[in-house]
């Protein structure tokens, strides 16, 4: 069973639909006990980093996710949920993240110098650094995924599994051991996205 952590940030309807479509058992929950008993955890999120991390901390769910990560449970952060996995974010101020992946989250506008558009919104192709990673079991280099974001992860080279080019290198998929993060929305990336979710669900404990 996959626990989708519901901490009050964003619409989980599509994500749950996509997992149901793959015949995966899911539960949308904020109950620490259910999260602890789940095989895998998905940390979703849309909105502002500061608000989200506050909600996660105040509800105690940040600690739960960190403990489960330390036990080796597979975790997938999506979009803002991916950004929350990093050490800190500079989205309207400075905020401390969960620190499960080395790196920080910064505004795209700091580094994009040309007049290309922000947010980075639409379909972009994935350049895969390590195709041998089991998350790419059903994915090809160059497959397109759907992004919507104005902030991006930086200084996370060690964790960089795949990226997209948008004047800057936009980390698409990152990983630290059992903790994965996707900046794009797999639940909105058509078959490519479904294949990534399927591969995540099939990850097996070492």
């Amino acid at each position: 069973m996959i626990a989708i952590v519901d901490y009050g940030c964003g619409n989980l309807y599509s994500l749950q639909c996509s997992l149901n479509f793959l015949n995966l058992e899911t539960v949308v929950t904020n109950d620490p006990e259910i999260i602890k008993s789940a095989d895998k955890i998905i940390l979703p999120g849309v909105g502002a980093f500061g608000d989200a991390v506050k909600l996660l901390n105040n509800s105690g769910l940040a600690e739960v996710v960190k403990k489960e990560a330390a036990k080796g449970k597979y975790i997938l952060g999506i979009c803002l949920g991916m950004q929350l996995l990093f050490e800190k974010s500079f989205e309207y101020g400075e905020h401390t993240g969960l620190g499960l992946i080395k790196g920080e989250v910064c505004p795209l506008s700091d580094d994009i110098k040309s007049d290309i558009k922000i947010p980075h919104m639409g379909w972009n192709s994935l350049c895969i650094n390590d195709i041998t990673d089991p998350i790419f079991k059903y994915t090809k280099n160059g497959d397109y995924v759907y992004y919507v974001h104005s902030f991006y992860a930086k200084n996370c080279d060690e964790a960089l599994l795949a990226y997209s080019d948008y004047e800057v290198t936009v980390p698409g998929l990152v990983k630290n051991k059992n903790v994965y993060g996707a900046q794009f929305h797999p639940e909105k990336s058509g078959d490519v996205g479904l294949n990534l979710l399927k591969a995540f669900a099939e990850l097996e404990d070492n």
Partner: peptide, 8 residues
Amino acid sequence: VASEIFIP
């Protein structure tokens, strides 16, 4: 539609 099609 949203439960069967996974694009924006």
